[in-house]
């Protein structure tokens, strides 16, 4: 039984938590792709930005990161709106790939700005040590429960937004057919603004969760980019629910791949976790480039 409890406590649960974090980032990539038709390369750095904005309050005011989270979300959304206005809006009518280059530039600018303001050292939120709760053989850290529950709540909120509100439905309409949305009188720019607010806000929440779970450093956005893209491709890019499933799947795959499945050595060396995400992405591109959920509506 020891093996099973290790499997759950050291691989399955962390995989779920990482999966939640990936899901929060991948939703934004998928939504933005659906609305603006480009792969947003700076999205990982939006997560970094959220994590660092929270540090302002945890470090100087001694706040709990959970209390700083809403402010980080709002702050990141505002920065995203400003970046869109300055660097993406001029290319609305150009080919999507030019916007990808612009986002490539924004990625570097965001990262160097973060390095300039906060330095390059690894930082942590000072949460103090909390002992894991034990349920029989399960050892669950309170932060793991919080991350999973808050992610679930955010996904439910996103679902209600997309299925019940006028703006959410308009967002799906623009993603479905931007030209028809425009001639129907839908204010596409308003939809774009809300896409940034939601995408960047969820990314910031994911970034803060990374800080709560482990640590924060300026390059983490780059490390996140590959799993986020893999999650978005897996879920069928442009489909936010698919991105949630894709995020969870990539997170679980990465962690479970390091389990000693066939010998007493990790099946995949922990240093190669991002390669697992890449393999999943490549397999999807070969087998089913439209993603697992191509048939679903979003």
């Amino acid at each position: 039984m020891a093996a099973l409890s290790d499997f759950i406590n050291l691989y399955l649960l962390p995989g779920l938590v990482v999966g939640c974090i990936y899901a929060l980032g991948a939703i934004g990539i998928s939504l933005l792709f659906g609305i603006l038709r480009f792969a947003h390369f700076a999205h990982g750095d939006m997560m970094t930005l959220g994590a660092y904005l929270a540090i302002i309050f945890t470090a100087s005011l001694g706040w709990s990161p959970y209390a700083a989270l809403p402010i980080a979300v709002v702050g990141t959304a505002i920065v995203a709106l400003a970046l869109d206005r300055a660097f993406y809006k001029p290319f609305r009518r150009s080919a999507g790939i030019v916007t990808v280059i612009a986002s490539f530039g924004v990625m570097l600018m965001l990262r160097s700005a973060i390095q300039l303001i906060w330095g390059v050292d690894v930082k942590t939120y000072d949460i103090g040590i909390r002992f894991p709760m034990e349920f029989g053989m399960l050892k669950i850290a309170p932060r793991q429960v919080t991350i999973v529950l808050v992610t679930a709540a955010l996904v439910v909120a996103l679902h209600l937004f997309l299925s019940r509100t006028r703006l959410g439905k308009a967002m799906r309409a623009v993603s479905d057919d931007p030209d028809l949305a425009r001639v129907s009188g839908i204010n596409v720019e308003q939809v774009v603004r809300w896409t940034w607010i939601i995408g960047a806000g969820l990314a910031a929440a994911g970034g803060v969760f990374i800080g709560i779970q482990t640590k924060v450093h300026p390059n983490m956005g780059w490390d996140l980019l590959l799993p986020l893209f893999a999650a978005a491709v897996l879920g069928g890019i442009g489909r936010p629910y698919g991105a949630v499933a894709g995020g969870l799947a990539i997170g679980l795959c990465q962690e479970l791949a390091t389990y000693p499945w066939f010998s007493d050595q990790p099946f995949v060396a922990p240093g190669y976790k991002p390669a697992v995400a890449f393999s999943v992405m490549v397999i999807m591109l070969i087998w089913r480039p439209t993603g697992l959920f191509r048939g679903r509506v979003f």
Partner: peptide, 28 residues
């Protein structure tokens, strides 16, 4: 062979991926 049949953005994402994997191989 894998990416060029589909849309351009997939190539962008896949090339980020291959660069990461090569980086990991060189490091590890």
């Amino acid at each position: 062979r894998i990416c060029l049949k589909v849309q351009g953005d997939y190539l962008a994402m896949a090339t980020i991926g291959i660069a990461e994997v090569i980086r990991l191989v060189i490091k590890n």
